[in-house]
Amino acid sequence: MAAQSWESATRHQIGHENRKVLKLARLAHLFFLLPFLTLFFLFVITPIFYTFGLSFFNASVAQASLFTNYVGGTQYARVLGDSNFWGGYETMLYFTLLWVPLMFVLSFLIALFLDSRRGKLGSLGKVMVFLPYGVPTVIGTLMWGYMYTPGAPMASLYALLGLGNQALAPGYIIYAMLNIIVWEWVGYNVVILLAGLGAIPKTFYDAARLDGASSWQVTRHVKLPMLKKYFAFIAMLAIIGDQLLFNEPFTLSNLSSVPFGFTPNLYIFHVTYFLSEFNYAAAIAFVLIAMSFVVAVIGVRFFMPEKSR
């Protein structure tokens, strides 16, 4: 339900003499917006414009200000031709293609299972699958990273499957990452889907059963369609999440050799920390922001409820 102006609703009761009070109330609600908007302006909007400004210069490390040596758009030309950046972007897209369908299937199956056993299991299953979300990703990655060390369980499993000791070898590291991210995030999505399943009115099931529907048909024709919005929501979260890929590859890079351009964020970190090319890092960051902005606008069109578009 849309918020209606309480002013218009109560105007008759309050009368003309109290207009002044209403005006103060109006100011009051603008005051409520201020704290969030101030921080939002300072730490989201300003940095973006600041980066944009920086990206037109090419200061050397020795210079005091980063706004020296104006070079026009040459930094952007460099980004366009930078195979490290685009290679990282490609890895990120490939990762999204693997992760989103896998996450859909796994979280749906686990949610269906836990939902149908709610009475028997209580919240035990839910807490169990959700727990990894609470483990800081760096620690989760360290734990899994050690488990891939020869002598530890994951390495033994790989050996058992005849894959040898290559879990963290360059071509395989993306699958190790996929496993770590499934472990960390599936539970979070399961909880969202469980809420969706819990919200389906029991009468729907009764009606389907009266019509003689099998449990497969109930799943296919009642549960799946009723979860549409929830799936859209977790897809949105997954796509945003994939653009964040940094913690897992960065942590793994200490245990194995991960290319510095493996994901765009890893590359920005490399350019800043190891090459000290701050202006170039700004250009890369701005390209990344612009591209996520495009994804964001498309995302809002597809995934957000009608009203907030």
């Binding site: 939002f40 730490f43 989201v44 300003t46 940095p47 973006i48 600041y50 980066t51 920086l54 980063l66 949105m236 796509i239 945003i240 999440g241 653009q243 964040l244 940094f246 964020n265 920005i268 800043t272 701050f278 890092a281 700004a282 960051a285 990344l288 922001i289 996520s292 902005f293 994804v295 964001a296 606008v297 995302g299 809002v300 957000m304 907030s308 578009r309």
Partner: peptide, 22 residues
Amino acid sequence: TLLVAVALMIPSTAIAYPTFVL
């Protein structure tokens, strides 16, 4: 409301570096 919805989808890591510089 639209601003909030769009901002929701800008990954926080993308503005980590700009935030640091600022």
